[in-house]
Amino acid sequence: MVTAYVMVKAHTGDADRLKREIGAIDGVVDAHIVAGDVDLIATVSVDTPAAVKDVAATHVQDIEGVESTQTYIAMD
């Protein structure tokens, strides 16, 4: 299994909807609204590194109101 953390920067104040839609993506374990330079952090747990890219680059970035994402893959 591969675990990754996806930092999501929004350009909308509609954080509830973003959290809901991100949380509904296959492979996303949980998503939290956070204070700071990014607006949400999602935890992703999938089978392969390629699937991480699929979740972050394809599904999360497709959501209306998502400005950008930054993904960190856990190494331990």
């Binding site: 929004a10 104040g13 609204i33 204070a35």
Partner: peptide, 10 residues
């Protein structure tokens, strides 16, 4: 856009 987020959650 963060005004709403902080008003609501912080």
């Amino acid at each position: 856009y963060r005004e709403e987020i902080y008003r609501r959650y912080a």
